[in-house]
Design a protein around this nucleic acid. Structure first.
Lengths: 125, 125
DNA sequence: GTGAGTAGTTACCCGAAGGTAAGCGCTTAC
DNA sequence: GTAAGCGCTTACCTTCGGGTAACTACTCAC
């Protein structure tokens, strides 16, 4: 590891790296519903219609597409249980659960963000 | 079958709340460049062209639009310094810095996600 | 005055994301 | 047999995020 003195900002490399990491993460996680869908399934496995009820507003078309994508990328498993009639349950994989901290922080931030918005609404009126 | 305590999952409310929080957070933070742009400016204030070089691939049009959006939402301040010629510096606000944990977790996850992808590439070849 | 740099704006275009609505194959309930 | 629920699929359409490229207005250096 050679240290080069002509780097004005000391930890520039770290900055560039973390930027790249975030860009890479966004590449997979980007989308209106994706992270929320993962969170929903991490909280508990669900069937198609249950998810659709929880994520109010998502259309069946988009949900089906998102589930397929997430299955391909190993975030979700589609389990078919041979009950009568068959139950189709979507389950989060262990890999989805590596997003636990991300989702936790995002939820915390989202909560305080909503509070902030409420405050600024009050001021305006 | 109706159980008297008709909440089967003990902390269901928490689940629904965190889901709503994530949805609310995504509403503001969603977009291909948004979070990366915020991170870049949290790391250090920059001028227009510097940002464009760091976020390789972003067009001037999209960058200008994103900066305007972020300024409106109080994530970024556009500072004009009357040097000769004037320097226009974009700075992250304190509110951007409340995203520190989110960005940290996202970066950490992005890093290990890239490793994982590399592994699976190797297996396939 | 010519070229380069800064900080954008404008016009045009494309593709993907996402919404709407309808339908399908299956089964169970009435 | 008819309706209703489940798990989707299909066709259609709209919106918008985003890319390209050209251009502007200003200043400085040569």
């Amino acid at each position: 590891m050679k240290v080069v003195i002509d780097e004005p900002i000391p930890d520039k490399k770290q900055c560039v790296d973390s930027l790249r990491n975030v860009l890479d993460a966004l590449y997979v996680l980007n989308g209106k519903w994706r992270l929320a869908l993962i969170l929903s399934l991490v909280q508990s496995s669900k069937r198609f219609n249950e998810i659709q009820q929880e994520l109010t507003g998502i259309s069946s078309k988009v949900l089906a597409k998102e589930l397929k994508d997430l299955e391909l990328n190993d975030f979700v498993v589609r389990q078919v249980y041979s009950t009568i009639p068959v139950s189709i349950i979507y389950e989060a994989t262990a890999y989805s659960r590596t997003l636990k901290n991300v989702l936790g922080e995002l939820s915390a931030w989202g909560g305080q963000h909503r509070e902030r918005i409420k405050q600024s609404m009050r001021k305006q009126s």
